[in-house]
Simulated assay, not measured.
Amino acid sequence: MSTLSWFITGTSSGFGRTLTEQLLARGDRVFATLRKTAALDDLKSCYENTLAVAQLDVTDTAAIRRVVKEAFERFGKIDVVINNAGFGVAGAAEEATDEQIRRQIDTNVIGSVQVTRAALPYLRAQGGGRILQLSSMGGQLSFPGLSFYHLSKWAIEGFYEAVIPEIAPFNIQVTLIEPGVAPTGFGGENLSRTPVMAVYEPTPVGDFRRSVAAGAFSTTGDAGKMVAAMIDSVSINPAPKRLALGSDAFDMIGAALVGRLADLYNQKAVALSTDRVPRTDPF
């Protein structure tokens, strides 16, 4: 197995930390970024020759460009760029503060977009590479109480739908990672809860809050197995556009897609009737 070099954002915990651990254990090189670098001191002491660590807040575009440049200069080549840093807002859309909305979009959408944009010139110059974008099953379906989180995931998936064919001629491939629920610690400092409006307590948003508080959402996914599947996906050519991870992701994404197709075909007659010359199909 050849040694690869990886650039990963958001490595202090969760998938980012597990990715870093598994990659270093197999002998790869990792340029890990995070907001508080001390969180990786234990790994740095064990892998001083294969782990580089840099402070990065992905809401700082100037810092993204500087750190991405540093990473390519440090390793000479980056085979895989992983956009993993994430943030979530939980609560009704009306309840969220302007600051929460801005941070949600700045972290999950603009941060990932700017890391990708910063890396593309280097990936093109070296003849190609891979990008893994952490999305979520929440990039294909949605739950009341997570509207702004879903906004960010659906937005980043739409971004890559257009970017993938743009960069394909340069041998740069992308996989959108869509995990289900896993014990990654996402409910800590990376999840911001909105102020509570009493009017939403008897609604699905209130039901969602109570379910979260009661621990009713089972974590069916194994984070270590999910990370191993992410790493393995890099050896698949052509790259899978999407990688659903976990039985909950598989089942719920499938049901959402089937439902959307049914809605579309139920509107077929109306859609065809609005052409300049209306078209009719036999079925």
Rank of each mutant, 00 (worst) to 15 (best):
R35M: 14
L264Q: 02
S147H: 06
E94Y: 14
A262Q: 15
E94P: 06
I105R: 04
I156D: 00
G76N: 09
Q140S: 04
V53G: 07
G158I: 14
A214H: 03
T18I: 14
A32C: 00
V234L: 06
E48P: 06
S152R: 05
L134W: 09
F72Q: 09
A216W: 00
W154N: 01
L141W: 06
I78M: 12
D248K: 02
L19V: 05
Y200E: 08
V212D: 10
S2G: 00
M197V: 07
V58D: 11
E21A: 04
P238I: 06
Y149M: 03
M137R: 03
I156R: 05
D60R: 08
R35N: 12
P179I: 00
Q133D: 02
S235N: 11
D98A: 13
G254V: 07
V113F: 13
P165L: 11
A90L: 13
F283R: 12
D248E: 05
F170I: 01
V199Q: 14
E99S: 14
E201A: 14
T61W: 04
A118E: 13
R17K: 14
S192H: 12
T11F: 12
T184N: 06
T280C: 14
G180D: 08
D263A: 11
A52M: 02
I164R: 15
A216V: 06
L120D: 01
A96G: 12
A249Y: 04
P144D: 13
A62W: 07
D98V: 01
A269L: 03
Q140V: 08
A256I: 03
S218R: 04
I105K: 02
L43S: 00
V205F: 08
N190T: 11
K241V: 07
K36A: 13
V113Y: 10
T175E: 09
A229I: 07
G187N: 09
G145L: 05
T107P: 15
A244K: 06
T11E: 11
R117F: 04
G139A: 14
W6L: 10
F159V: 01
Y122N: 04
K36H: 15
E201T: 12
R103A: 02
M137Q: 10
L19T: 00
A198V: 11
E161A: 11
P238W: 04
T274K: 10
D207G: 01
S233A: 15
G16C: 01
A214W: 12
T59Y: 02
L134C: 03
V81M: 10
I8N: 03
I236T: 14
S45L: 04
L24F: 02
T280P: 12
G128V: 03
Q133M: 10
V89N: 04
V30K: 01
T59S: 13
N108P: 13
E94G: 13
I231H: 05
K77W: 05
D281W: 09
R276N: 13
D248I: 08
F170Y: 15
F208N: 06
G111V: 08
D232G: 14
G139V: 02
I172K: 07
N108V: 07
N83G: 11
R124E: 11
L56Q: 09
E99P: 10
I236M: 13
M252Q: 03
R74M: 05
E73R: 11
S218D: 09
Q104P: 15
M137I: 02
L40A: 05
G246L: 03
S2K: 08
D60K: 06
L272H: 06
R279E: 15
N108I: 02
T3R: 13
